[in-house]
């Protein structure tokens, strides 16, 4: 579904992504783990089109989207829940959701919103309040629900567990697993390596702008290098 080959990206003259290769197959949950500053978010930005690519290609469903403008990607079925959630704080929860369906004007938008409320009941309770007043966990739910409003085939998630209480993190991860059941492909970038690898099919480990280890999630969980570096055991 998503194929990255030889991808490079730079901030100014400093290259931060070196020759990245990775694939995300249809229906998979693939996670990218790594320490702070490894380049995970930069890679995700390259995929969503908000960070310029200096080399290599990104293919989505066989089509080259390397240079495609960011705003055209959700229409293809590639949606993102960005780092730091980036919800529209001055707009109401319901308005945030409706904006997620910006490309759609049909009747399904209303039923999609109901579905989002069913997935996250707290959002329904707070639907008319400004999104800025939500707690961190609720904002993360809103960011995911908003991304799902674009009816994605593939959802890019950037650190959905960041700064959240463990019980909320579990809830978010449960939702990600349920997305897989609905046929949505998920590419999950996480610092919480243990949690992410437990729900993922496959995983990649990134260190200072390179993919250093890749494999099946279960294998990575058992890998002594990863256990020592990322799982703290």
């Amino acid at each position: 579904m998503l194929q990255v080959s030889g991808l490079r990206s730079a901030y100014g003259r400093i290259e931060v992504l070196h020759d990245i290769d990775l694939t995300v197959g249809a229906g998979e949950i693939v996670t990218l783990v790594g320490a702070n500053g490894a380049g995970k978010t930069t890679l995700l930005k390259c995929l969503s089109g908000t960070q310029p690519v200096t080399g290599g290609t990104v293919q989505f469903e066989g089509a080259d989207i390397t240079g495609l403008a960011a705003h055209k990607r959700p229409g293809l079925g590639l949606a993102q829940s960005p780092e730091g959630r980036q919800i529209f704080t001055s707009l109401s929860v319901a308005e945030n959701l409706r904006l997620g369906a910006y490309n759609f004007k049909d009747a399904r938008v209303a039923s999609d919103i109901d579905e989002a409320y069913a997935m996250f009941p707290i959002l329904k309770e707070k639907r008319n309040l400004p999104a800025g007043g939500l707690s961190g966990g609720q904002q993360q739910m809103l960011a995911m629900a908003r991304a799902l409003m674009a009816r994605p085939k593939c959802l890019l998630l950037d650190e959905p567990s960041m700064g959240l209480a463990p019980i909320i993190v579990q809830q978010i991860f449960d939702v990600i697993v349920s997305l897989k059941a609905r046929g949505v492909t998920v590419f999950l970038v996480e610092q919480n390596a243990y949690g992410a690898l437990r729900i993922a099919d496959r995983g990649y480990v990134m260190e200072t702008g390179r993919i250093t280890i890749e494999g099946r999630a279960a294998e990575l969980l058992a890998d002594p290098r990863i256990r020592e570096a990322y799982l703290g055991v």
Binding site: S48, G49, T50, A69, A70, H71, K72, R73, P74, G75, A79, Q80, P82, Q86, I87, F88, L99, G100, Y102, N103, R146, A147, A150
Partner: peptide
């Protein structure tokens, strides 16, 4: 940035 990632 967020606006462009939802297709605006």
């Amino acid at each position: 940035v967020a606006a462009s990632t939802i297709g605006i």
